[in-house]
C-alpha cells in the first residue's frame, strides 16, 4: 500500500512537473495597441444595432447618436518575434471626404514604439478587408497568416453565377452594399497573393499554434468567411484579439452583435465565447473598433497616450524584463 502510495505521489509529482514545464514553455509576450486611424461620427446604430440612437431617450444605451471608431492594430512582441495583428489601411482622399482622422502610415506609428517595420516577422490578419489588411507592403519581411476559408469565400463570390448583387467587388460608387465578399480591393488581394507567391505566407486551415502561447483560432463567418482570432499569452493572462469579429468590446460584454458585414451572428457569438473560455471573461478581449478604446471605460486599453497625428497608443502589458515604450 505504501509502495503504491509512493508510486502515485511520484507519478503526480512527475505530471505536475511536466505541467509546469509546459506552462513555462509558453512565451510571455508584450502587447501594445495602435490607433491606425479613426472613423469619425459613425451613427452608433449602424455599428452596434442594439445601441441605436433614440431621440429623447434617457437610456444611456440609446442616447448616443454618433461614435468615433478607432481602427486598432495589435503590436505583439514575443521574444525576438514582432507580430502585428491586422495592419490598417491607406486612402488619403477618403480621409478628407469622410473626416477620418488620426491616420499615419502604420510603419511610422510603430516606430513611435521603437520598432522598425523591417523587423516585423509576422502579420496575422483577422480578415482581409481593406482597412485591416491594407498596409502589407510596409512590412516586406513579414510572413502573412491568412485563413484558407477567407480566400475561398472571396473566390466563391467572385465566381457566383447568380444575381448581380451577390458579387465580390463593389457595384456602385456609393459603397459595397453588404455584398457577400465586399471590402476586398484589388490592391489588398494582390498583396495577399504577392506574399503567397513569394513564399512569405502561411495559408491557415483552421486553428494553428504559431509559437508556444500564441495561437490562431478560426472564427469562420464571425465577420467574414475566414475570420481568425489570435490568443496571446501575457503577464496579465491570456489576451484574445478578434479584429472585426470583436469590433465592439461592449458588444462582447453585453452579448450583442456589432459591425455586421458577412457575419453569421451565431458564429460571432461563438467567437465571443472563445474569448470568455480562453481568457476567463470579457476584459481581455481586444476589439478592433471599440469607441471606448484608450480610456478607463475599456480598462485593458487605459494605459494610453496620444502620439503622431493625434492617434492614440496603449501599452497593454509588458513581458518580464521588457522596458516601457510609453512616451
Amino acid at each position: 500500500m505504501k509502495k503504491q502510495l509512493a508510486l502515485g505521489l511520484a507519478a503526480f509529482g512527475l505530471l505536475a512537473g511536466l505541467g509546469a514545464t509546459t506552462a513555462q514553455a509558453q512565451t510571455v509576450c508584450s502587447v501594445w495597441l495602435v490607433e491606425n486611424s479613426t472613423f469619425m461620427g459613425v451613427p452608433f446604430g449602424m455599428f452596434h444595432p442594439d445601441r441605436s440612437f433614440v431621440q429623447g431617450s434617457t437610456n444611456p444605451r440609446n442616447n448616443v447618436n454618433t461614435v468615433d471608431l478607432p481602427v486598432n492594430v495589435g503590436v505583439i512582441k514575443c521574444g525576438k518575434d514582432l507580430i502585428l495583428y491586422d495592419n490598417g489601411w491607406n486612402q488619403t482622399e477618403y480621409h478628407k471626404m469622410t473626416g477620418t482622422g488620426h491616420w499615419s502610415p502604420l510603419s511610422k506609428q510603430i516606430a513611435q514604439l521603437g520598432f522598425d517595420a523591417k523587423d516585423v516577422s509576422k502579420v496575422i490578419i483577422g480578415h482581409g478587408h481593406w482597412d485591416h489588411a491594407g498596409s502589407l507592403d510596409e512590412f516586406p519581411n513579414a510572413i502573412l497568416y491568412v485563413q484558407k476559408e477567407e480566400l475561398r469565400g472571396i473566390e466563391w463570390a467572385l465566381n457566383y453565377p447568380g444575381h448581380e448583387r451577390i458579387r465580390a467587388v463593389n457595384d456602385s460608387p456609393g459603397g459595397c452594399s453588404r455584398t457577400p465578399a465586399c471590402g476586398y480591393t484589388p490592391k489588398t488581394m494582390d498583396q495577399i497573393y504577392g506574399k503567397i507567391l513569394r513564399g512569405k505566407a502561411v495559408i491557415v486551415d483552421g486553428d494553428l499554434e504559431i509559437m508556444p502561447g500564441v495561437k490562431i483560432h478560426a472564427a469562420h463567418r464571425a465577420h467574414t468567411a475566414g475570420s481568425q482570432l489570435l490568443e496571446v499569452n501575457t503577464a496579465i493572462g491570456k489576451l484574445m484579439f478578434g479584429s472585426d469579429a470583436y469590433s465592439s468590446w461592449e458588444a462582447i460584454r453585453d452579448w450583442e452583435v456589432a459591425n455586421v458585414q458577412q457575419t453569421d451572428s451565431v458564429q460571432q457569438f461563438l467567437a465571443y465565447e472563445k474569448c470568455y473560455k480562453v481568457t476567463g471573461g470579457y476584459q481581455n478581449c481586444v476589439a478592433a473598433h471599440e469607441p471606448l478604446s484608450y480610456s478607463d471605460k475599456y480598462p485593458l486599453t487605459k494605459n494610453s497616450w496620444v502620439g503622431m497625428n493625434g492617434a492614440r497608443l496603449a501599452e497593454i502589458t509588458l513581458a518580464p524584463g521588457e522596458q516601457s515604450r510609453k512616451k
Binding site: 486612402q91 482622399e93 471626404m97 469622410t98 459603397g175 459595397c176 471590402g183 480591393t185 459591425n259 458585414q261
Partner: peptide, 8 residues
C-alpha cells in the same frame, strides 16, 4: 470615388 469602400 472616395466612398467606394466603406469602413468594414
Amino acid at each position: 470615388w472616395p466612398g467606394e469602400h466603406k469602413p468594414n
